[in-house]
Amino acid sequence: MATSNPSGELWLRFKAGDERALGELARLHYRSLYNYGLRLTTDSDLVWDTIQDLWLELWDRRDKVGDAVFVKTYLLKSLRYKLLRRLPNQYPTRTDELTYTNTPSESPVEQQIIDDESMAGQMAQLQRLMASLTKRQQEVLYLRFYQNLENHEIAQIMGMERQSVANLLHRTLKELREHWSSSLLLLLLQMCW
């Protein structure tokens, strides 16, 4: 997994107007960007198109961007900004407390977990657990887990304080752990792997 260090020579070649550097750079970051886009919307066509626009705009402004940019953080942040502006229903950008719970609240998560035993069932369990988190919690967890970013980078991308990211991540993990440790982990332990 590529970490978010400045892409050095490649970035400088890109800035100098080398189309091949653009291609290599895009190749390097395309999946990360697309995957991140899918966290923000389910409209994959919109994600593909927005990434194209993002790169082309960056290409147009290549002589105006800095020499020592943390490319990955910069790209993810730009994509987030662009995509959220294009989405019809606004993503909650300020309050952490807005919970978009997709789970029917009457049946306890644990009961559903015990009902599912197959691999697909495990995925369904995880999906339910994730859906019980707020969007911001999901995003923080995702940026840390999938994109391998540090708290200060996540803070930059999501426009938050570093400390708030740390707190949110901590709270998210605590919530997940409560579910996991109660029954999911027990169940997982019983399954051989």
Binding site: G23, A26, R27, Y30, R31, W48, Q52, W55, L56
Partner: peptide, 8 residues
Amino acid sequence: IQQEVNRL
């Protein structure tokens, strides 16, 4: 992904 890079 390759297609998208080409398009770009």
